[in-house]
Nucleic acid binder design. Structure first.
Length: 293
DNA sequence: CCTATAGCCTGGACGC
DNA sequence: TGCGTCCAGGCTATAG
């Protein structure tokens, strides 16, 4: 389930092979993922060079030599895989999908250092999608996003102003990409545990009547940053599907304190609480009964 | 503007 | 063994 650390891990794995590569030919094996591929998508990529590979929230952005942006969201199970030999249809095999059944896109590339490469996109659940945005056009996915959580724009004052009139649970608010961009279920659960905040607390309860952030909200900002940075250093988290572009898994899942650990003791030293699960907005939240208030 | 809900999609886990 | 059910989850559309 690629959240910010997983998407950034993928970006870092792809960048050395894709930045500077020329797209020679593109094959699509179905009309849509979650949404239809854009009109003329393959032709718009072919014969362009990939100038840069960047990330915004959970989106991968390939900026092409004509200034257009090719955007990918990996959804739940999307994966890019690079192979160093030419496209080998009909097998369409790759590391993440040995049958090739769920490979929906592939591109043959030529890179000045690495030579001929094949980039494939596999996505069993097809919750991912791709978009193409010519220079100067609006991007309806990126434009509404809130600040990156690892940048300076995420700070207690900003969260206080975003939360002060919100009655909804802080768990749900942190998943709202227009408030903070890039967090998903796992890292929200982990960050709230680190900050000692119950996921059911309302946003407004973290803000004083005068609009100042309460101490828990002050703690939340470094909790978010630290959990993301640690996950990034571990190459992300692999539950079932996530793999880096070279097929290696992340290992931050071994450091989860609460996510997926229902019934386990809280790992915080001296806490003695138990991790429980709570359904919020159709999603599982995990928290400690003792050290989160 | 805010909040809540259903739907998209497949595979794996689980109960019988 | 096989079948049905549920769950995972980000994001959008829709309704209130």
């Amino acid at each position: 389930m690629p959240e910010l650390p997983e998407v950034e891990t993928v970006r870092r794995g792809l960048e050395p092979f894709l930045a500077g590569a020329r797209i020679e030919a593109v094959s699509l094996y179905r009309e849509n993922l979650r949404f239809p591929f854009p009109q003329g998508f393959a032709a718009a990529l072919e014969n362009r060079r990939i100038e840069t590979l960047t990330r915004r929230a959970k989106y991968l952005l390939f900026t092409l030599s004509d200034g257009a942006v090719w955007m990918t969201h990996l959804g739940m199970t999307g994966a890019y895989i690079i192979k160093d030999h030419p496209l080998d249809e009909p097998s369409r095999r790759n590391a993440g999908d040995t049958s090739g059944r769920h490979v929906h896109f592939s591109a043959s590339l030529s890179h000045p250092l690495h030579g001929a490469l094949t980039l494939s996109y596999a996505d069993p659940r097809r919750f991912g999608f791709m978009g193409l945005y010519p220079p100067g056009t609006a991007n309806p996915f990126l434009d509404p996003l809130g600040p990156e959580p690892l940048g300076n724009a995420l700070n207690p004052a900003m969260l206080a102003s975003a939360f002060k009139n919100r009655k909804g649970p802080v768990k749900t608010l942190l998943l709202d990409q227009t408030l903070v961009a890039g967090l998903g279920n796992i890292y929200v659960c982990e960050a709230l545990h680190r900050a000692g905040i119950l996921p059911a607390r309302s946003g407004a309860s973290l803000v004083d009547p005068d609009g100042a952030p309460r101490p828990e909200l002050l703690a939340l900002v470094p909790a978010i940053r630290n959990v993301l940075e640690e996950a990034l250093a571990a190459g992300g988290s692999t539950l079932r599907d996530f793999r880096n572009s070279d097929g290696t898994p992340g290992y931050f899942q071994h450091s989860f304190a609460v996510y997926g650990r229902e019934g386990s003791p809280c790992p915080k030293p001296g806490c003695g609480g138990t991790v429980v699960r709570l359904a919020q907005a159709g999603r599982s939240s995990f928290y400690c009964t003792s050290c989160q208030h």
